[in-house]
Design a protein around this nucleic acid. Structure first.
Length: 814
DNA sequence: CATTAGAATAACACC
DNA sequence: TATTCTAATG
């Protein structure tokens, strides 16, 4: 899968046309059209000119897209390598490849230009890297490297990193890149950003990247765009080549991607964009809903096709989703409808706190798994829990671990983002490109080699003074004797190790991508010519990886580590090495990791999925749980603070996406209390709950109260009984009753009356109550903070709004 | 230079 | 709460 040894996708020979006989057959029968509804059929058949496919959730857009590709191929309008098909996730690309393959039978070789914007951009950029000052073997930085580099740039400019954090600069630059702004193009009006140094630091950062022969994610697109804009001949080549362009999730494209597409479509105008403005949930990463709203203007003569028949969800689920999304303004407007039965109403339930919510969902999942009077047993694979923010996953993991419910976390802390994996990868990177300074920095002193700040500083200075990379700088430093005793020996060993690994890596690889060398990097031959000489029988890259981790002492470091997570880390390293087997060489692997960052492991055991709402886009499940519908959490406070109404509408679309993932059963829940940064906080039910149409919602009575409903099947655990009294009272609160009565009014949970106290309405000696610490007396007051002497928990500093007067607390039973 | 304790601070989502 | 940063100590 490495881009180095792939057949050149431009070679016509690489892509045979579908045999004539089959085409003739296809003219008579077109099986890929079977079962398409009129709208889908229209989208498949409109091959000439721009097409906008407005496809609501669950309306079979992938079906239509794949059929369209099949149609292009079978009709002979295009070869596989003349179709540019862009998706947002690798998963989507993979799925589409599979489905096209299935439609076409054995005849289709992989479609070389089907992939994410980033993956496709990398391919293009490797071919023309020198046009933007890179070499074709440039490395792709991950967020970690990016940040480290950013810090260097900031401190090099003598800016206080405390006051101007690298994260912020990274965000700023990222946003500029999303808008296709190179440093020179950043509007003057934004020059004041980041202490008036924004553009300057941006430029400096870009220069550093070029020096390192590296690109960050944003660059992948931006560089290609710059190349297209500056080099008409290169652009023309691609414009000519891509006869048909398909874009999935068009509502998620940012400005840079939009420009990228528009340039490429200029010759043939055969661009087909699929999207749904109601599912635009990536505004924070620069996506412009405007792109889809403007499509007809951008591409004159565009044909617009609407897919409105939903094949996924029951009428109740659809109704609930429609009700929520109706609160947004400025929609293109679609009316989803379905032939499906009403099904079960969307279930709504409130809980005392996040843990109880997790407990309830755990029980519900088990109940579904067992099946009930009305429903057959469900596979755990058919059940998903979709959260707003990844930290919410934790409660579920904890709960599921204790009850032994198998689950999988999708998009959580990713495998390749783990510390030990990044370290190991840094070793691999060094072996592949010894000039990779960021990798060098990462591992010179990992494991500890007695090379601390001071020693590293020396290496840096030496390198800079001689205009060398860090490895060479270290070599010079050693030669000059600029480093003392113990560190020196270790550093020497390290440098020699890298040299050795590099030689071993480069040996067999040269032949693999020699064609590219000839073509693109001929004047950088020094290294490569030498590597020809070293070519010879060496270990496989898998063995080599093991050797590296061994010789560097990295494995030993974790073996010696007696912390509880060490064994897991070793396990991960093993897994990493195993993953290498799927690749031809280290380079291919490194690129895969940089771009693919998703961990699709081939596990087969049935598991409940836990993922974020964002991660769930494009997926569907028979049963979906949507926990944490609370003000501030969902809709997220930050979204609303940062983007106001726009932010809120995006949150609402997220709610819409969540509900529409469900096929048969959708359960929305919220908790009255939640721990935020370890502090208990009372929560208000989300405003989106108010927006659920009454007729599609079933407000559940808490399990245990009447012993009815879904909870009936679940054996009450001890902890359930324990909190039952509390629950009874929670659900008898005025607010809850109001919600039950009206089916939609904002439910005010008892604790929600909590954030009551403005300032501190407490005096010294007052008896107070805190949810976690219990009863106590106020012993001191400091602004909005109280020093409380708790009866059981001792002295604590507590923000006043987290406690209530002891008398008020008496109606909150514990 | 490494280790450690205590303080500060953090948490939205992704290629 | 849990991680990460800093300063102090060995």
């Amino acid at each position: 899968m490495s881009s180095f040894n792939e057949d050149d996708a431009f070679e016509a020979a690489a892509a045979p046309r579908v045999p004539l006989s089959q085409r003739a057959m296809a003219a008579r029968s077109t099986p890929y059209m079977d079962g398409l509804n009129p709208a889908q059929r229209a989208a498949v058949e409109a091959l000439d000119g721009p097409v906008l496919m407005l496809a609501g959730a669950g309306t079979g857009k992938t079906r239509a897209l794949t059929a369209r590709i099949a149609h292009l191929l079978v009709s002979g309008r295009a070869r596989t390598n003349e179709i540019l098909a862009v998706t947002f996730t690798n998963k989507a690309a993979r799925e589409m490849k599979e489905r096209v393959g299935r439609l076409m039978g054995e005849t289709v070789e992989g479609m070389p230009w089907m992939g994410t914007f980033h993956a496709i951009s990398v391919r293009i950029l490797r071919r023309h890297a020198e046009l933007v000052g890179l070499k074709s073997n440039f490395t792709i930085l991950d967020t970690d490297d990016q940040l480290r580099l950013m810090k260097q740039v900031i401190s090099a400019a003598n800016v206080d990193e405390k006051r101007w954090p690298a994260r912020q600069l990274a965000g700023l630059i990222d946003a500029w890149k999303n808008r296709a702004l190179t440093p020179a193009k950043v509007p003057v009006s934004e020059a004041s950003a980041f202490n008036n140094l924004g553009t300057e630091l941006y430029a400096a950062y870009q220069q550093r990247l070029l020096d390192l022969n590296a690109a960050d994610f944003g660059d992948l697109l931006l560089h290609v765009l710059v190349i297209f804009q500056k080099h008409q001949d290169v652009l023309a080549q691609y414009q000519h080549w891509f006869r048909f362009i398909l874009v999935d999730e068009y509502q998620d494209t940012n400005v840079a991607q939009y420009l990228w597409l528009r340039l490429l479509a200029q010759t043939h105008h055969n661009i087909c964009c699929v999207g749904d403005d109601d599912q635009s949930i990536y505004g924070w990463r620069g996506a412009e809903v405007g792109n889809i709203l403007r499509f007809e203007k951008d591409f004159p003569g565009a044909k617009v096709v609407r897919l409105e028949q939903n094949y996924r969800s029951t009428a109740h689920i659809l109704g609930a989703a429609s009700g929520v999304i109706a609160g947004n303004e400025g929609r293109l407007g679609k009316t989803l409808w379905t032939d499906e039965e009403d099904g079960e109403k969307v279930r709504l339930i409130g809980h005392w706190d996040g843990e109880e919510e997790a407990r309830w969902i755990g029980e519900e999942v088990e109940a579904l798994q067992r099946g009930g009077r009305t429903s057959p047993p469900k596979s755990l694979d058919d059940i998903a829990i979709l959260v707003r923010a990844s930290h919410q996953m934790r409660a579920f993991e904890d709960r599921f671990l204790t009850i032994g419910l198998p689950y999988r976390v999708i998009g959580g802390p990713r495998f390749y983002e783990r510390l030990e994996i990044r370290d190991a990868m840094a070793y691999f990177r060094l072996a592949v490109s010894p000039e990779d300074d960021l990798a060098f920095e990462r591992v010179v002193n990992t494991p500890k080699r007695g090379l601390g700040d001071k020693a590293q500083q020396k290496i840096q200075t030496t390198a800079r003074d001689h205009g060398l990379n860090l490895l060479e700088g270290a070599r010079v430093l050693l030669a000059e004797g600029g480093i003392s005793g113990k560190g020196a020996g270790q550093l020497r060993a390290f440098v020699e190790g890298v040299d050795r690994w590099h030689q071993e890596v480069m040996g067999p690889l040269v032949r693999v991508h020699s064609d590219l060398d000839d073509e693109v990097v001929d004047d950088e031959g020094g290294v490569r010519v030498a590597s020809f000489r070293h070519a010879g029988p060496t270990k496989s890259h898998v063995e080599l990886a093991e050797t590296m981790l061994d010789e560097s002492g990295y494995t030993a470091m974790w073996q010696a580590d007696k912390s509880p997570e060490a064994p897991g880390r070793l396990e991960n390293l093993k897994e990493l090495v195993k993953a290498l087997e799927n690749f031809d060489n280290l380079q291919g692997f490194l690129e895969h990791v940089a771009l693919i960052m998703d961990n699709a492991s081939g596990e087969t055991e049935e598991k409940v999925s836990i993922m974020t709402l964002h991660g769930a886009k494009g997926l569907e499940f028979p049963a979906v749980f949507l926990p944490g519908w609370e003000e501030g959490l969902f809709p997220s406070q930050r979204s609303m603070d940062e983007s106001g109404k726009k932010g809120l509408e995006e949150e609402r679309r997220l709610a819409y996406v969540g509900i529409t993932r469900a096929e048969e059963l959708c359960s929305i829940s919220f908790a009255a209390n939640r721990r935020v940064y370890g502090q208990w906080q009372s929560q208000l039910p989300s405003r989106f709950i108010d927006e659920l149409p009454e007729e599609h919602v079933d407000v559940l009575t808490p399990p245990g109260l009447y012993g009815g409903g879904f909870g009936a099947a679940a054996a009450p655990s001890e902890s359930t009984i324990e909190s039952r009294a509390a629950r009874a009272d929670v659900y008898n609160s005025p607010g809850w009753k109001r919600m039950q009565a009206s089916g939609g009014a904002r439910a005010a949970m008892p604790a929600a009356r909590g954030p009551v106290i403005e300032g501190t309405a407490f005096g010294l000696g007052d008896r107070v109550f805190h949810q976690k610490f219990g009863y106590g007396a106020v012993a001191g007051i400091d602004g909005d903070k109280l020093d409380v002497a708790f009866d059981k928990a001792g002295h604590k500093k507590i923000v006043a709004r987290f406690v209530v007067g002891a008398d008020e607390a008496s109606d909150i039973p514990f």
